[in-house]
Design a protein around this nucleic acid. Structure first.
Lengths: 207, 207
DNA sequence: TAAAAAACACACCAAAAGGTCAAGTTTTTG
DNA sequence: CAAAAACTTGACCTTTTGGTGTGTTTTTTA
């Protein structure tokens, strides 16, 4: 007799367990290094059961990646013309730092995928991301033209904000080791957000 | 009959071919995904020959990593008290950007290692890197105390410089795709160096 | 509550991959 | 120039792993 899981939810629960386990394994072992068996163990299911929900390993990876992209998309924040440069940048940085601290795993999966050649993300970069950068660059350029903001290359500014915020997720191991700490604490988000916001606003001569 | 390779250099040449091939394979396929056979193929040697020079795959990886760390070490630049904050930061950024554009592969190997938990680099981080950050932080702190520099958290400043410079190596695929370009060009190094130097110096109120 | 659908799980298989061996060939050395 | 050392390589062995097949149990549905 089984525990009375809400009916019709077994599938969703199992898939979720698998995806969480798979994310961990893919980060720690890489795509090839993560075995279906290790994912199954980590999810607390027999291997055959994992392959019952996902036809093969490739599909598991795709599902993890899709989940990651959704998160990326949600967490990206936005840059709205009506906010003006100062508020927009503040919001953007806050959103990205928040993402990094609250969802480091998504950031890592994404980073590894790009570093390894972006095989599965070429389309995403070529279409969605490229357009996003162009759109937001245009917003920055407007502010510059209006004299609301110092002359700064918007594209490289975006890259700088992405990299400096994601660093706290992707390189958390290194950062914690250097600071001789076991884990991030609540204060850290605020501290980093404040540091980056102040620094970058000054970089933009907005402070 | 063989080509007259400089005598006694066969070993050095073969090992070098293997390490170059291995670096590529490890980046593209990850540790587990890179096979001894694929490394051998890429190096133009039979598998058994590769295993003659390196007892096993683990050893190949260690050699690649060691090479990477040496490069990291050479390319890190330095932060000298006598340079004063402005020049020191300029030099530091220039060195790191140069590293990123001229040796992106080393940066990628390093990044993947850290993201995956820094299994092989824990010692390096715990000893060398931690001390480096502490030493250089102290230098920054002196400048701050002397009023030569705005009050800024030196540790996070170092992280920001590391991340924003390495981004151009680790994420080159994404950057190029977004900018709709096939490769970096010579101008890019200068452009990025200038952008980052100006921006970060402003962030430090040194400009 | 009985039939159908979904979920579970053991045993097995074929391919891939790490690594060994032994028999050669080339190069160095005394 | 002969013996030793270094190098080269195909064949082979063992383990791992992705994936399948088949039968059983649980859950849903009518």
């Amino acid at each position: 007799m089984k525990k009375d899981n809400k009916p019709q939810k077994i599938r969703a629960i199992s898939i979720n367990k698998i995806l969480i386990a798979a994310q961990d394994e893919f980060i720690l072992q890489g795509y090839k290094g993560a075995t279906v068996q290790s994912i199954a163990d980590s999810a607390g299911l027999p291997k055959a059961n994992v392959l019952y929900y996902f036809k093969n390993k490739e599909n598991i990876y795709h599902a993890v990646l899709e989940q990651t992209l959704n998160m990326w998309d949600e967490g990206i924040g936005d840059i709205l013309p009506e906010d003006g440069p100062k508020l927009a940048i503040e919001k953007f940085i806050r959103a990205k730092v928040s993402m990094s601290f609250n969802n480091p795993k998504a950031s890592k999966i994404y980073a590894m995928e790009i570093i390894q050649g972006a095989q599965h993300l070429k389309d995403f970069s070529r279409t969605y991301l490229r357009q996003w950068v162009r759109d937001k660059s245009k917003v920055f350029q407007c502010w510059i033209d209006n004299g609301e903001m110092h002359q700064i290359d918007p594209v490289n500014l975006i890259f700088l904000i992405w990299s400096s915020t994601q660093h706290y997720a992707d390189f958390d191991n290194q950062i914690l080791t250097i600071m001789n700490r076991a884990d991030y604490e609540n204060d850290d988000i605020e501290h980093v957000t404040k540091f980056l916001t102040d620094f970058i606003l000054r970089g933009c001569r907005l402070k």
